[in-house]
Amino acid sequence: MTDMLAIQDEIVAEFSSFDNWADRYEYMIELGKSLPLIDPKYKVDNNLIKGCQSNVWLHSETNDGKLIFTADSDAILTKGIIAILIRVFSNQDPDSIMEAKTDFIDKIGLKNHLSPIRANGLLSMIKELKMYAVKSKTRSN
Protein backbone atom coordinates (compact mmCIF):
# COMPACT_ATOMS: atom_id res chain seq x y z
CA MET A 1 0.00 0.00 0.00
CA THR A 2 1.46 3.29 -1.11
CA ASP A 3 0.63 6.28 1.01
CA MET A 4 -2.36 8.16 -0.38
CA LEU A 5 -0.62 11.49 -0.15
CA ALA A 6 2.35 10.16 -2.10
CA ILE A 7 0.04 9.02 -4.89
CA GLN A 8 -1.66 12.40 -4.90
CA ASP A 9 1.68 14.17 -5.22
CA GLU A 10 2.57 11.88 -8.06
CA ILE A 11 -0.63 12.81 -9.90
CA VAL A 12 -0.12 16.52 -9.30
CA ALA A 13 3.42 16.21 -10.70
CA GLU A 14 2.15 14.39 -13.79
CA PHE A 15 -0.45 17.03 -14.51
CA SER A 16 1.89 19.95 -13.92
CA SER A 17 4.10 18.70 -16.75
CA PHE A 18 1.46 19.72 -19.31
CA ASP A 19 1.48 23.30 -20.46
CA ASN A 20 -1.73 23.23 -22.50
CA TRP A 21 -5.23 22.00 -21.95
CA ALA A 22 -5.28 19.68 -24.95
CA ASP A 23 -2.39 17.61 -23.58
CA ARG A 24 -4.01 17.53 -20.17
CA TYR A 25 -7.28 16.34 -21.68
CA GLU A 26 -5.50 13.76 -23.83
CA TYR A 27 -3.86 12.43 -20.71
CA MET A 28 -7.23 12.24 -18.96
CA ILE A 29 -8.56 10.25 -21.90
CA GLU A 30 -5.57 7.90 -21.65
CA LEU A 31 -6.27 7.46 -17.94
CA GLY A 32 -9.91 6.81 -18.74
CA LYS A 33 -8.92 3.95 -20.98
CA SER A 34 -6.88 2.40 -18.17
CA LEU A 35 -9.70 2.50 -15.64
CA PRO A 36 -10.09 -0.80 -13.73
CA LEU A 37 -13.45 -1.79 -15.16
CA ILE A 38 -16.36 -2.93 -13.09
CA ASP A 39 -17.53 -6.52 -13.59
CA PRO A 40 -20.58 -6.27 -15.89
CA LYS A 41 -22.71 -8.00 -13.28
CA TYR A 42 -22.22 -5.00 -10.97
CA LYS A 43 -23.08 -2.51 -13.68
CA VAL A 44 -26.57 -2.11 -12.30
CA ASP A 45 -28.74 0.85 -11.35
CA ASN A 46 -28.01 0.24 -7.69
CA ASN A 47 -24.37 1.09 -8.29
CA LEU A 48 -25.05 4.26 -10.26
CA ILE A 49 -23.78 7.47 -8.68
CA LYS A 50 -26.39 10.19 -8.54
CA GLY A 51 -25.53 13.74 -9.56
CA CYS A 52 -23.29 13.01 -12.54
CA GLN A 53 -24.06 14.21 -16.07
CA SER A 54 -23.05 10.87 -17.49
CA ASN A 55 -23.69 7.43 -16.00
CA VAL A 56 -21.09 6.37 -13.46
CA TRP A 57 -21.08 2.91 -11.88
CA LEU A 58 -18.89 2.17 -8.89
CA HIS A 59 -18.25 -1.08 -7.06
CA SER A 60 -15.92 -2.11 -4.29
CA GLU A 61 -14.61 -5.34 -2.85
CA THR A 62 -12.53 -5.99 0.23
CA ASN A 63 -9.24 -7.79 -0.10
CA ASP A 64 -7.13 -8.32 2.97
CA GLY A 65 -8.72 -5.40 4.80
CA LYS A 66 -8.31 -3.07 1.86
CA LEU A 67 -10.92 -1.74 -0.52
CA ILE A 68 -10.52 -2.40 -4.21
CA PHE A 69 -12.61 -0.14 -6.43
CA THR A 70 -13.77 -0.77 -9.96
CA ALA A 71 -15.96 1.55 -12.04
CA ASP A 72 -17.21 2.49 -15.46
CA SER A 73 -18.85 5.40 -17.23
CA ASP A 74 -20.26 6.03 -20.68
CA ALA A 75 -18.21 9.22 -21.02
CA ILE A 76 -14.46 8.88 -21.42
CA LEU A 77 -13.54 12.12 -19.62
CA THR A 78 -15.59 10.97 -16.67
CA LYS A 79 -13.73 7.66 -16.79
CA GLY A 80 -10.51 9.66 -16.65
CA ILE A 81 -11.67 11.45 -13.54
CA ILE A 82 -12.73 8.24 -11.80
CA ALA A 83 -9.47 6.60 -12.84
CA ILE A 84 -7.58 9.37 -11.03
CA LEU A 85 -9.76 8.98 -7.94
CA ILE A 86 -9.46 5.22 -7.95
CA ARG A 87 -5.70 5.42 -8.26
CA VAL A 88 -5.73 7.36 -4.98
CA PHE A 89 -8.51 5.53 -3.14
CA SER A 90 -8.16 1.91 -4.24
CA ASN A 91 -6.12 -0.61 -2.32
CA GLN A 92 -6.32 1.46 0.89
CA ASP A 93 -7.80 0.60 4.26
CA PRO A 94 -11.19 2.07 5.18
CA ASP A 95 -9.81 4.45 7.79
CA SER A 96 -7.39 6.08 5.39
CA ILE A 97 -10.13 6.42 2.78
CA MET A 98 -12.51 8.03 5.26
CA GLU A 99 -9.92 10.54 6.38
CA ALA A 100 -8.42 11.21 2.97
CA LYS A 101 -8.06 14.84 1.94
CA THR A 102 -8.73 15.61 -1.68
CA ASP A 103 -7.17 19.01 -2.24
CA PHE A 104 -4.94 17.48 -4.91
CA ILE A 105 -7.92 17.91 -7.21
CA ASP A 106 -7.59 21.67 -6.96
CA LYS A 107 -3.89 21.40 -7.66
CA ILE A 108 -4.29 19.54 -10.95
CA GLY A 109 -6.57 22.27 -12.21
CA LEU A 110 -9.40 19.86 -12.84
CA LYS A 111 -12.03 21.94 -11.15
CA ASN A 112 -11.31 24.96 -13.33
CA HIS A 113 -12.44 22.90 -16.23
CA LEU A 114 -15.59 21.61 -14.59
CA SER A 115 -18.91 23.40 -14.57
CA PRO A 116 -20.61 23.57 -11.16
CA ILE A 117 -22.81 20.65 -12.18
CA ARG A 118 -19.83 18.55 -13.10
CA ALA A 119 -17.94 19.64 -10.01
CA ASN A 120 -20.94 18.34 -8.09
CA GLY A 121 -20.58 15.04 -9.90
CA LEU A 122 -16.97 14.91 -8.78
CA LEU A 123 -17.99 15.52 -5.17
CA SER A 124 -20.63 12.80 -5.47
CA MET A 125 -17.97 10.37 -6.62
CA ILE A 126 -15.72 11.17 -3.69
CA LYS A 127 -18.63 10.90 -1.30
CA GLU A 128 -19.51 7.51 -2.76
CA LEU A 129 -15.93 6.24 -2.44
CA LYS A 130 -15.95 7.26 1.22
CA MET A 131 -19.38 5.72 1.78
CA TYR A 132 -17.99 2.38 0.68
CA ALA A 133 -15.29 2.73 3.32
CA VAL A 134 -17.86 3.55 5.99
CA LYS A 135 -20.01 0.59 4.98
CA SER A 136 -17.08 -1.76 4.96
CA LYS A 137 -16.13 -0.66 8.49
CA THR A 138 -19.60 -1.09 9.91
CA ARG A 139 -19.72 -4.54 8.36
CA SER A 140 -16.45 -5.67 9.90
CA ASN A 141 -17.23 -4.28 13.36
Binding site: Y25, S54, A75, I76, L77, T78, H113
Partner: peptide, 11 residues
Protein backbone atom coordinates in the same frame (compact mmCIF):
# COMPACT_ATOMS: atom_id res chain seq x y z
CA UNK B 1 -20.62 10.46 -25.35
CA UNK B 2 -22.22 13.89 -25.85
CA UNK B 3 -20.73 15.00 -22.55
CA UNK B 4 -17.18 14.38 -23.81
CA UNK B 5 -17.80 16.22 -27.06
CA UNK B 6 -19.40 19.17 -25.25
CA UNK B 7 -16.52 19.39 -22.78
CA UNK B 8 -13.90 19.47 -25.51
CA UNK B 9 -15.86 21.95 -27.64
CA UNK B 10 -16.01 24.19 -24.59
CA UNK B 11 -12.23 24.01 -24.34
Amino acid sequence: HHYDLGSLLDQ
